Amino acid sequence: MPTQDTLQFLKNLEENNNREWFQAHRQDYETAKASFEKLCHEILFGLAKVQDDLVNTRVKDCIFRINRDIRFSKDKSPYKKFFSAAFGPGGRQSGRIDFFLQIQPDNQSTLGGGMWEPTSTHLASFRQEIDYNPAHLKGIIEKEEFRNYYPYISGDKVKLMPKGYTADHPDIELLKYKQLFFYHKFTDKEVIARDFAQQVIEGCVILKPYLDYLNELFYDNV
């Protein structure tokens, strides 16, 4: 499980984001990585009880590499300043909408999921579904439990009206979204708590109806 040393390693890495420092502190990295892997194992074990298609998923397939892809980035820092994982059937490359966990110091750890960088076809399907049956999605994301746990939304909106819809549409604000990703923040104190894995699992259970909605819309009806 993550400890204060795990978070401290990530803070040190952010301040010394270069290969020389990383190699000199390789053992610290391996220890911190092992603590994150143990956390992910507990989370995946718990999620498999509520989502059958995760039963045969391996932890190592859920965890993202700490190395950054800097080929097309102005920021040439070689390493991420966080540990992250996606829990989906088969791991992070499930091709579906998965639970995403990020462990980052200074109270920046998050759990979330949702529509992010959708294809034009998926975005059109999302808007069409809202137009035809807004109550389904709103019944999920406007529940008090959901809104209290996931108060943060990450997602750009179109500046003008989405094509085919007018400004007086009753759900125009939902239709404007190009992404709709909900997330919950954890404090460092919560991350290093003994029950953190269970906290994440409970958060995933709250988020699951929204992810199921998207996966059914995008993939299950194809």
Rank of each mutant, 00 (worst) to 15 (best):
P2F: 11
F87T: 04
I66W: 06
R92Y: 11
G155L: 01
V55S: 09
P89M: 10
S35F: 11
P209K: 09
L7S: 08
F83C: 09
F9S: 04
D28R: 08
L101W: 03
E117V: 08
T6N: 04
I172T: 01
M115S: 03
P89G: 09
S109Q: 10
D188R: 04
V205S: 05
H25K: 13
D156I: 00
A48W: 06
L211V: 08
P78F: 12
L7N: 03
K157M: 00
G91V: 09
D156F: 00
G113T: 09
R92V: 06
Y29G: 05
R26Q: 15
E42A: 14
E216G: 15
F9H: 11
R92W: 04
D52Q: 14
Q102H: 14
K157P: 00
R19H: 12
S125A: 15
K38I: 08
H122G: 14
S125K: 11
K176F: 00
L214M: 07
K189F: 02
I153F: 00
D53P: 01
Q93C: 05
D212R: 13
K163L: 02
G113E: 03
T119K: 15
N148G: 03
E37A: 05
H122L: 10
Q198Y: 07
L137P: 02
R19K: 15
S154L: 08
Q128I: 05
R19F: 06
D98C: 13
F83R: 07
K49E: 12
Q23G: 12
S35I: 01
T119L: 06
E15M: 10
D188V: 12
G155K: 00
G203F: 07
V191G: 09
T110M: 14
F45E: 13
L111E: 02
Q8S: 13
Q4L: 10
D195F: 06
A34Q: 14
G164T: 12
N56C: 04
V205C: 03
K185H: 09
N12V: 02
V205L: 10
A135V: 14
W116I: 06
G114V: 01
G88Q: 11
R92N: 11
D131R: 00
K74Y: 07
A167L: 04
L111N: 03
D156H: 00
D28F: 05
R58V: 06
M161R: 01
S35R: 13
